[in-house]
Computed example of a mutant assay.
Amino acid sequence: MRPAVLLAAGILLAACAARPSPDTSVDALMARYDGHGPGASLLVVRDGVPLVRRGYGFADLEKRVPASPQTDYRLASVSKQFTAAAILLLVQDGKVSLDDRARRWLPGLPPAADAITVGQLLSHQGGLVDYEDVMPADTTVPLRDKDVLALMAKTDHLYFAPGTSYRYSNGGYAMLALIVEKASGTSFQDFLRDRIFVPLGMTHTLAYVKGGPPVPNRAYGYSEEGGHWVRTDQSMTSSVLGDGGIYSSIDDMARWDAALYGDRLLSESSRAAAFTPHTRTDDPTVEYGYGWRITGDSVWHSGETIGFRNVIVRYPDRRLTVVLLTNRNDPEPYKTALAIAHLYL
Rank of each mutant, 00 (worst) to 15 (best):
M1V: 11
M1Y: 00
C16V: 15
C16A: 14
A17T: 04
P20I: 14
D23P: 00
L29Q: 15
L42A: 12
L43Y: 00
V44H: 10
R46F: 09
R53M: 11
A59R: 06
E62K: 10
R64L: 14
P66D: 13
A67V: 07
P69M: 15
Q70S: 15
T71M: 09
D72A: 15
R74E: 06
L75E: 02
S77W: 01
S77Y: 01
S79K: 14
Q81M: 11
F82Y: 12
F82M: 09
F82H: 09
A86D: 12
D93T: 06
G94T: 10
V96W: 01
R101S: 06
R103C: 02
I116H: 05
I116C: 07
L121P: 03
Q125D: 05
D130L: 07
Y131A: 08
D133R: 14
P136S: 10
L143V: 05
D147W: 07
L149W: 11
H157P: 09
Y159T: 04
F160E: 06
A161Q: 14
A161H: 10
Y166E: 01
R167K: 15
N170C: 10
N170R: 08
N170E: 10
L178N: 02
V180G: 01
K182G: 02
S184N: 03
S184D: 04
G185D: 11
S187L: 09
F188Y: 12
F188T: 03
Q189E: 15
L192D: 02
P199C: 10
L200S: 04
L200R: 05
H204D: 11
Y208L: 02
V209W: 10
G212E: 02
P213V: 04
P214D: 10
P216D: 04
R218N: 13
G227M: 06
S238M: 11
G242Y: 09
G245C: 10
I250E: 08
M253H: 07
M253L: 14
A254Q: 14
R255A: 08
A258K: 13
A259M: 12
G262T: 05
R264C: 12
S269P: 00
S270N: 09
S270P: 06
A273L: 14
F275V: 05
T279P: 02
D282W: 13
V286R: 05
V299Y: 06
R309T: 08
N310K: 12
N310P: 10
V311N: 04
V313K: 11
R314H: 15
Y315T: 07
Y315P: 00
D317I: 09
L325K: 01
R328D: 06
N329Y: 05
N329I: 05
N329W: 03
D330H: 14
K335T: 13
T336F: 00
T336P: 00
A337C: 09
Y344C: 13
Y344H: 15
